[in-house]
Amino acid sequence: MRIKRPPAVALVCLGLFLLCCLLVPRFATFGNIENVLRVAAILCIVACGQAIVIILGGIEFSFGASVALASVVTVTVLPTTGPIAGLAAGGACVIGIGAANGWLVGRMGLPPVIVTLGTLMMASGTAAWLVGGLPLDAPPSAAFSWPARGRVLGMPVSILAAMLACLALHLLLAHSRIGRLWYHVGANPLAARLAGIDVARITLLGYVVAGAFCAVGAIILTSRVASGQPALAPNLPFETIAACAIGGLPLSGGRGHVLQVVFGVLTVAMLNNAVVLINLPVAWQLVLLGLAVLASVGLQKDWAALKRLAGRTAR
């Protein structure tokens, strides 16, 4: 899909940015903006994976738990393998869970909600069992903290990684054969099968690639918290789904552009940041996020659809 005019979410995002600059104290400072972008970076990388699954007509709930499991596995194996192999092992766990989800959804034909909920619980339980329920600190090392704190040409590594993730997602969605087939499978799986597409394989690959994006996010997050935490990012799946929904990706699949993901992520990150800066309780982040999701999905419904809906309920 080629975007000829900017997605509606771009205007919302820009509006929110201006609003925050005007109303939120200390928002428009260089340090804070960089902070927003650092938080947004991890969210953005994982949301890229979520977007693939949503375009496929599915949904990924297991991302948060698999990131937590990755952090625990990393810290557990770190003393024997060293930081780089440790982080890689954590990332591999995330990809493995993605592959399991893809196999269960694609080959076994199980519903994505149930599958990813199941793997969420299994990953979460495994993580808690590995460390006995308590966070486990990682021994500090330069290589280990590089993904979160390092800079390349003055640019934080995490933000650079997010930009590369967006580029990769764009290339996949707009220029690769597999990405094209994700749209077909998401738009109409039965028609895709009858057109000769191997729907199971395309679905499986989609979940694996989504897992790979999430793995990058997991490595950066583990590096940042420098510990293995069985309850590391419980809201991550919901925040990424929210970012995609706010960006305008229909959860029924078959549509989506990388810019929608980017602006959705920035909107979520700014909302979260503004809540902290105006000294609201952090719990308000979720409340506002929920409101933003409902409002954006409501506004994206065109008037004809709204009228049809009204007519149907009236009858």
């Binding site: 077909h184 109409n188 009858l194």
Partner: peptide, 13 residues
């Protein structure tokens, strides 16, 4: 509609 068309995708696709 059910088995043939990808209603959301472009004609060319």
């Amino acid at each position: 509609h059910a088995e043939g068309l990808f209603a959301r995708l472009s004609a060319r696709r």
